[in-house]
Amino acid sequence: MSDETREGSLSTDETPGGSSAVAPATADTVIEVDDVNFAYVKGKDVLRDISMQINKGQVTAFIGPSGCGKSTLLRCLNRMNDLIPTAEITKGEIRILGTDIYDPSVDVIELRKHVGMVFQKYNPFPKSIYENVAFGLRIQGIKSKSVLDEAVERSLKLAGLWEEVKDRLDSSGLGLSGGQQQRLCIARTIAVQPKIVLMDEPCSALDPISTTIIEELITQLKDEFTIVIVTHNMQQATRVSDRTAYFYLGELIEMDDTIKIFNNPSRKETEDYVSGRFG
């Protein structure tokens, strides 16, 4: 990323120190993306020269037009792209908590326990609310009823769903409203106590009220989790995120504090996009 930003700062009259993203990894950095190229099919890189740092306890938003690679990068962070046989990182390294997550010694199962994911289309299992939240712990072999009960209650409370469902934990998760289902999915994700939660357009299938609830939830969750969220909604990015990364055609154009990105971006392209003059 350093190239990008330096270029950006040089071409404007900004003070050169404005790009804090070029700062070396600090103790607070949990995710470091280091000069990464990624291809779904050999020879066609959909991500190019991506470098960024994501800090602990912050909400980082990925914005950019459709098809620019936001989801792709997000899914690289918990190696969900492993599901696609030909997909691979062709250059660079992604380090989470200091470890290269594509190193052969890394167990992807363990990685995903630390890096949870909430999907665009809420996808609770056709099980009871309780079993949905307990799923992640059950597959880890936890059987103790008291441990599960405690985890389910804590996660549902964190997800702001406890009051609404505590009397019907045994009824199906599919019986909830869309917004409740998405919060159930968030509860399911945080039940395994990940360090990082990735969210790919978590509100895009929801009504405005549910969206507001989830946005509030996100700002509360950042005390405990580092959150990366992909969104198409500029207001949402300004409301929930501390830092914002703008992508365009597989490249990271600019990453900075959200306030700066939306009020005073270093790059012309970013300004055009966030002000709606894009295209």
Binding site: G136, T189, V192
Partner: peptide, 8 residues
């Protein structure tokens, strides 16, 4: 995806 993402 959901269960894999939970570490299954």
């Amino acid at each position: 995806e959901a269960s894999l993402a939970l570490g299954a």
